[in-house]
Design a protein around this nucleic acid. Sequence first.
DNA 1: CTAGGGTTAG
Length: 514
Amino acid sequence: MKSSNVEPDERVFTTILSARARLRNLDAGKVVHEFISENDILSNSYLQSALINMYPGCGAMDVAQSLYDTFTQKNLVVSTAMVSGYSKIGNIEAARSIFDQMVDKDLVCWSAMISGYAESDKPQEALKIFLEMQQSGIKPDLVTVLSVISACARLGALDRAKELHIFVDDNGFGKALPVNNALIDMYAKCGSLEGTKEVFGRMHNTNVISWTSMISAFAIHGDVDNALNHFQQMKCENVEPNWVTFVGILNACSHAGLIEAGRKIFASMVDEYSITPQLEHHGCMVDLYGCANCLRDALELVETMPMAPNVIIWGSLMAACRIHGELELGEFAAKRLLELDPDHDGAHVFLSNIYARERRWENVGEVRKSMKHKGISKERGLSKIEMDNEVHEFLTADRAHKQADEIYTKLNEVVDKLKDEHYAPNTSCILVDLDEDEKRDALLWHSNKLPFCYGLIRGEKGSCIRIIKNLRICEDCHNFMKLASKAFDREIIVRDRTRFHHCRGGSCSCKDYW
DNA sequence: CTAGGGTTAG
């Protein structure tokens, strides 16, 4: 182009830059950046936003920021690109700070902020911003609605979800395919498989995302039969499964312990569908073997898989070893994990616990010192319950709630009643340096049990109690919920980090396999 | 009529 003496026009650069952004090719992008600077066309706002848009994907948000700082006039589109750039790299505070400085905000920049919060797992903030947007007189479009539904899914509050569904229908989005797909996922993550089925049943047309969302919904609720059924059915309807579909179906097998079925499906990816298993699929298989206590198979897969295992893979193996008390392999996995992520809280806590159990006090000291030095602490247990249109949060041994006294009194009552059902606190779930009495208290105050008691106090009599937990539910809390479902004749639905537990009449839908 | 926000996945 240059040799024929045709000057490239500015449109060419926006095309090149968006290609660079997709390729995540930082060096090539910088060459274009320099060329633009040298030719004094950096004042073109189309070029500005294309440049800003390229950097976050290349892992160079700092370059985007310094470039942005040089612009004296902050264009709305360019600022929005900064908001979404910071959101993509997980720096939501920086995104918000730019957002707050913007004047005359339009729909797109509000949407960028909403999806930023949704993807940063701050659903409450996303919904709050959505409300503010409407109060400022701006009506959402389809894209906004999708982000809001996704935020509500992460929040997990069913009443809020139902309200949003009505809003979506009332505003004319109820027939759009992507909206219905998002609603399927929302109901699943809010613990309502019924809602999921209802939305799916009313859809006039479906695509691979609809079917995949259904399969994943059944997977997280432990209904492997329906997950497999829907997988068959989508084949009959000539909908081609994609790689996400396989993540869902393999997860379903993992949650139900169906090793053979999982193996076959994993093999069929290549044999029947010509889909190369990715890291995620290998992760599902490690999970499948790990949960089923086939730790040798899990390790073999990790060591022979065609790509380098990442933090999630080693974490999955480590978690399986923790559950099955396989300390030696667990230590190995934790160490590999720490090589990839030296600040991983779970691996530190796990190592320290293994060493404590084996009375290797020197090692315990080393790990704790390193944690203190790096400022690492264990992620705290956090549980939530929705009540009267409000989401109430509880940490372990939390006394911050306004009705804390009442809740703790109730907890004692509940524990007394559960003792009739032979409930005995299982302190092996707690591995810190506490004496037995302290352990017992720490266990009873596990965050899960607090929202349950609050649900008993405030909820309608006989209604289902829905709890959302940030970590994997511990064995003692699981046992507690099962017994409580019988003793109080209540359905209790707990969403933990990876799946749902439906407790009813003394047993759980996961059949104690999780 | 070429910039910025998007549903399924651990």
